[in-house]
């Protein structure tokens, strides 16, 4: 673990050819390619935290990954990402376990601050690869914060175990909602999937599996108005969107999988964003509107959002950065 570091040395900023921000499949794949191209990348992986950063990316919160090629029997998400990380370190990627607090892409070299956003930047970068990913959306209820960790959870794979023999609910209708529901059905006595529409967005294979799972029931056309309980979750207040009928349903646990938002707050006003907040990249490339800044993975992908597409676009960003640096005489 010689390339691990949790702090950065104070003093004058360090000039790097490539700074990679984010450590999911996109960032780590970019790191593998950049380090093999002798660009000595530094990768800032974020801080372990349940609320903002997620070093290793969204796969750190999953169990079996069954669709990543090369693993015919599936692989655990955290294990897959540990492999990505190890491979990047093997070729010399320097990994910093900290949060980027500020960037300045207005002039070259670009400036990147780790830790305090005042004073001198931590790094000057000839090029930057942005791979900060996306994070799960919450319902936006006050009760969520109060009951987080007390029956309300954003990580079914972490917390499902504690609901053995209890009744739980999953809010959402996409692949990740059904994955969570099926995972929870191993422990819970019943799993109710609450979805605001009358049909699922999830893929056909996931739907078939979910509909065949005897522990799963579906509550269609229903939205969650509140999570009830003082010290732990006791019930959900739900509303039928067609009839407006409101009722309280008892649950010991609530898991939410209603979609994602891109982690682009850091880049607002500096990089072009789509209306939905995702970064804009030029067609068939990883180039952003700022020359020398590249983007890869879910932060710029509101359509495919797969580990394999993130890894593929991380590779594109590394090659784009390498070729661009060559044109700059680097």
């Amino acid at each position: 673990m010689t390339n691990d570091s949790t702090s950065t040395s104070p003093g004058s900023p360090e000039l790097r050819k490539v700074v990679i921000i984010g450590s999911g499949p996109a960032g780590l794949t970019a790191a593998i390619y950049c380090s093999r191209a002798n660009l000595s990348p530094v990768l800032i992986e974020g801080e372990p935290s349940s609320t903002s950063d997620q070093p290793g990316g969204q796969l750190m919160l999953t169990t079996e990954v069954e669709n990543y090629p090369g693993f015919p029997d599936g692989i655990m998400g955290p294990e897959l990402m540990a492999g990505f990380r190890k491979q990047a370190q093997r070729f010399g990627t320097e990994i910093i376990t900290a949060k980027v607090s500020r960037v300045d892409f207005s002039e070259r070299p670009f400036k990147v601050w780790v830790g305090p956003s005042e004073g001198d930047p931590t790094y000057l970068a000839e090029s930057v690869i942005v791979s900060t990913g996306a994070q799960a959306l919450m319902l936006g209820l006050d009760s969520e914060q109060r009951l987080l960790g007390h029956g309300f959870s954003t990580c079914a794979t972490c917390d499902g175990f504690f609901f053995r023999g209890q009744d739980v609910a999953v809010v959402g209708g996409g692949d990740s909602a059904l994955e969570e529901a099926m995972f929870l059905s191993r422990f819970a006595s019943s799993v109710t999937v609450i979805h605001r529409r009358d049909e699922l967005r999830a893929s056909k294979i996931m739907q078939d599996r979910a509909l065949a799972n005897e522990k799963l029931t579906f509550l269609w056309n229903t939205v969650v108005e509140d999570i009830l309980g003082e010290s732990s979750v006791e019930a959900l207040r739900v509303r039928d969107v067609n009839t407006d009928e409101v009722r309280d349903l008892p649950f010991a646990g609530v898991f939410v999988a209603i979609g994602h938002r891109p982690n682009t707050d850091l880049f607002k006003g500096q990089l072009d964003l789509k209306d939905n907040g995702y970064l804009v990249t030029q067609p068939s490339s990883s180039r952003t509107n700022v020359e020398g800044v590249f983007a890869a993975g879910d932060v710029q992908d509101d359509w495919y959002r797969q580990a394999i597409t993130a890894a593929g676009s991380g590779c594109m960003a590394a090659i784009d950065a390498e070729r661009w640096l060559e044109t700059q005489g680097g």
Binding site: E47, P48, S50, L148, G149, H150, C158, D159, F162, F163
Partner: peptide
Amino acid sequence: VKSIPMMLLFKDGEIAHSMIGARN
């Protein structure tokens, strides 16, 4: 425990502080 990681700090045999979720 309903969520992990959860850390409890025991002082003189009593719970002095509890934390839910990862942190740096």
